[in-house]
């Protein structure tokens, strides 16, 4: 496979981007001045003496520390390249020396209760902002609707251990997305309640570039093709709306009363609603002999490969 000009351009763009960022950083960078968008302990570094260390926290919060030790956040204890503000309990709660000296005064340390959701999320994003999974959280539907990280995650009391969730999927998502729960209980549905598919298999809960925070395949196509690989094509004869309007032109994504999660119970109506000659539409209408009182009401008996075909322009095969 020979390198394509566009691939080369992407690589060059990456190198150029690095150079621009580095140069701009030299020119404009540095702390201080206007408030950083991501306020937190790092940008207002306390003196090193203000940090007591996680072992000091353990003396009073033994049970909490024991649970913390069993979570991936314990890895912050190994963060020795940077200062104590990146390690252990104080990586999230801020410097704790004053809190200890004051005999456990809660006002002397950062408490996640009683602060705004934006403040909470900014604190978590200090570490978790980077990488495609979280890089769009600030613009995500969750964040702009006042949903913070701790609405779904719990560092100290997680019920689901892999991602430190307060509840497992999909029950966690159903807490707010009430209208989705009954859809997954319909006869024809994606098997989310059975544990085969998670909400996060299709949606990026932390935000993304695609509408409804949908994910994409590796080839930047609709996420549906991750599992439904035979529908991805490319085909010689594409059924254009599949690629231009998306799978939701004909299907509902979560669950339906209709077979194949279609939007209509009668397939012929779904087809006829597009395949009727109209001005301002080049979609072909059905021929005159397609008597809907006969076999032709079952369009897909003949037009089988409606998602695309390599050999038949009318999707017979």
């Amino acid at each position: 496979m020979t390198a394509h000009p566009i691939r080369k351009r992407i690589l060059l763009a990456g190198v150029a981007l690095c150079a621009v960022l580095f140069g701009a950083g030299q020119l404009f960078g540095g702390a201080g001045g206007k408030k950083s968008p991501v306020a937190g302990p790092r940008t207002q570094q306390a003196e090193a003496t203000k940090y007591a260390g996680a072992e000091a926290c353990q003396a009073c919060h033994a049970e909490v520390y024991e649970k913390f030790e069993a979570t991936p956040h314990w890895k912050t204890m190994l963060e020795t390249r940077r200062g104590p503000e990146w390690q252990g309990c104080e990586a999230c709660h801020g410097p704790g020396a004053d809190h200890i000296e004051a005999g456990g005064d809660k006002t002397k340390i950062f408490n996640f209760k009683g602060v705004s959701t934006k403040t909470i999320s900014e604190r978590c994003l200090q570490c978790h902002l980077y990488g495609e999974e979280h890089s769009n959280f600030a613009r995500s539907a969750h964040n702009v609707n006042d949903v913070s990280c701790v609405d779904c995650h719990s560092v100290h009391a997680a019920k689901e251990k892999q991602f430190l969730l307060v509840r497992s999927q999909p029950e966690l998502c159903y807490t707010c997305h009430l209208e989705v729960k009954p859809q997954f209980d319909r006869p024809f549905r994606h098997r989310v309640n059975q544990g085969l598919v998670d909400c996060t298999d299709c949606h990026n809960q932390h935000g993304g570039f695609v509408t409804r925070q949908l994910r994409s395949t590796a080839a930047q196509d609709a996420v549906c093709f991750t599992c439904h690989t035979d529908k991805a094509g490319p085909f010689v004869f594409e059924h254009a709306p599949v690629k231009t309007e998306g799978c939701m032109a004909c299907h509902v994504p979560h669950g339906s009363s209709n077979p194949r999660l279609l939007r209509r119970s009668q397939i012929n109506l779904l087809c006829l609603e597009c395949h009727t000659l109209t001005v301002d539409s080049d979609v072909p209408g059905i021929p005159a002999f397609h008597n809907q009182s006969q076999k032709y009401q079952a369009c897909t008996v003949c037009h089988v490969t409606v998602h695309g075909s390599n050999v038949s322009s009318v999707f017979f095969k």
Binding site: I10, L17, L21, G29, P37, L129, Y130, A138, A219
Partner: peptide, 17 residues
Amino acid sequence: FPTEQLSFQSSYFKNVD
């Protein structure tokens, strides 16, 4: 399907992500 992807995220500049 070969695919190449370059992505970035930066909050380096003051007040801008």
